[in-house]
Amino acid sequence: MQNWKIFKQGVIEELPLQIGVFPFGVIYGIMAIESGLTPIQAFLMSSIIFGGASQIAFVQLVSNGIPTGAILTTVSAINSRHFLYGISMLDYLKNLPLRWRFILSYLLTDEAYAISIRKFINEPKELFLHFHLLGTGLTLFISWQISTLTGVLLGGNLPEFLELQLIIPLTFIAILIPMINSLSTVCVVITSGFSALYLKNLQLDYWIIISGIIGIIVGVITSKLDKKDDLG
């Protein structure tokens, strides 16, 4: 059963990331309750939206009385990077039945993508790649629901010194460092990172997307240098 073997591989590879995801979900749950959402709203949002950063933004905006249009725009902007994930996986998933693409679309989040795309790139001829994404996505989904519920039940009772929000950048560092293997990827990290700092300071709603696009453009331009200066 090669398909379930690959599913299991996805689950196992996704599990270490839960050390970063779980506190994130707990933070969201706590923030949602403190922002005035009911426990049912806070919990079900994690399966209706299923997007950590956008959910935290959502509860912050709701607690400040921001109108629906602005909330929708902000959540769309934060999650629009998932559109790019879908495009980058299109080659590997395009021949699947619609029901599969429907399910995998729902599960296509940062941490599932980050783990599965490495498998997709390294083994493009593997027939059951979609089971890998199913494994990473379901693992993340279950972890996210449990951690959200934990946060909802805890309320605001965690000690502040833990600085759980630091786990978010640490998680992404762990994911991205192995991908930095050429001069162009170094340029992408520097330009997207520093442009994000600058653009966010200008209070642009779309700072993540604009800085990401800047990084991609720089990556494409500098990719011509990679043949001579490949670090990998």
């Binding site: 950063a53 990077r81 790019l84 994930y85 495009i87 980058s88 940062d110 993508y113 980050a114 795309i117 790139i121 929000q165 630091l166 978010i168 950048p169 992404f172 560092i173 994911i175 991205l176 991908m179 930095i180 162009s184 990827t185 992408v188 990290v189 997207s192 990172g193 520093f194 442009s195 994000a196 700092l197 966010k200 700072w207 993540i208 997307i209 800085s211 990401g212 696009i213 800047i214 990084g215 991609i216 990556g219 494409v220 990719s223």
Partner: peptide, 18 residues
Amino acid sequence: NTFKYIPLAVLTPIIFNG
């Protein structure tokens, strides 16, 4: 060819911001 830069370009800003 631009796809390989997408995860780096969209996740690095989250790191820097954090």
